[in-house]
Design a binder for these strands. Sequence first.
DNA 1: ACCTGAACACCGTTCAAGT
DNA 2: ACCTGAACACCGTTCAAGT
Lengths: 238, 238
Amino acid sequence: MTLRADADEPAERPRVPLSRRRVLRAAVELADRDGLDSLTMRRLAQEVGVEAMSLYHHVANKEAVLDGVVEVVLEEVMAAVDAVEAPLPERDWRAALRARILAAREVFLRHRWAPRVLETRTETSPAVIAYYDHVVAVLRAGGFTFDLAHRALHVLGSRALGFTQELFRPDGARPADAEAAAMMERMADRFPNIVGMLADAVHDDPEGTLGFCDDQFEFEFALDLILEGLERRRAAGA
Amino acid sequence: MTLRADADEPAERPRVPLSRRRVLRAAVELADRDGLDSLTMRRLAQEVGVEAMSLYHHVANKEAVLDGVVEVVLEEVMAAVDAVEAPLPERDWRAALRARILAAREVFLRHRWAPRVLETRTETSPAVIAYYDHVVAVLRAGGFTFDLAHRALHVLGSRALGFTQELFRPDGARPADAEAAAMMERMADRFPNIVGMLADAVHDDPEGTLGFCDDQFEFEFALDLILEGLERRRAAGA
DNA sequence: ACCTGAACACCGTTCAAGT
DNA sequence: ACCTGAACACCGTTCAAGT
């Protein structure tokens, strides 16, 4: 059952003459609600109460819609980063950058489909460049040469925006304990080291309330390791 | 023009009764040659000289094909990693792991579409688990606790397999110098730090033969920074 | 200027039918 | 057991027509 009321509303959502902006915001909402696969031109048109072909008056094609939703999400990131409270980069670049990255991360946690879209963009969008420009500004204020700042961008990669794509997710261990144990048993001879690692992790935290794959914890551990490595190179005058 | 010869061949490629294996290898070849977008069930069928619907006797559906090509590529990775010459992990885990990761990287440089497919897999494939199992084995031999090995997998992420997805590619700077200079000019007020950084990089290497975004160089820089950070934590008994 | 309906060229997939 | 043709339910997109 959809939410579109027709007969009820007197003039069924009066003017609002559709615009690129409204299309893109609807696209973000649609992806948030129903997932990225639901973001088709036909469904998006339906969402803004129009026929699919009308969209093409406001966006060039579907690729332009995807570019556009990246833009919208990145604006949200910029707003979140600007609102962050942290030491001045001149005082403590690591704390300054760390706080910004974690703020950006929160935006992506609200739009979990967004990293996937970002990765499919062939051209770096101006919004992404603007974000990385800000990162370089923080690094420069912290005493980085342009050269080391450049290295830093490559080391951080998407982590500068607050997310990583994990290829190895030990999902087998998360489901109901009985089933997980059985699965680990079955995997034990093929993947002895992984199974040992996961068994050990479970043992360390038998309640599992945090989960031994607390992504936030892992994200911060990795981020701190990288920031530390960069600081060492900065201090060494690299 | 396609390469399928019909009238010429006497019995037009005699038996070879099609198999899951043959389908998957053809899929990899097709993606290598024509790109990931060309990997459709219909084109794949054509590639192995059969109607599209026949494929479903050997693979469940398209998702199974994508799972399968990941499997094939990962087997190639495992073979490359096994053939690597490097110090024993017990002697020098960093050198051992570094050499393996760079060997894996070479496989993905031959199949540039593969990272994109890998990232879309919702279930971690057994082949990926097997690879990471090997990585944990190296770390363990190098004196890592299971816990720190676990952290290490998260820090490395896809880098353990030899690739990263860069969101920020300063592509504006690569094209013909005149055009690049004009573009930098236009961007200078919006992205002063990025433009400064790129200008500086160009200045350092005016010939540009290496390119200031030599991915291999950046990959190794980042990898070494991370391995160093992990070694420090290992030595500290984390 | 903005929106529409019908149509086109593609997808993945199902199903009943062939050998 | 393996392969096929026709069909279905979707895509993104074009085009000529409406207001």
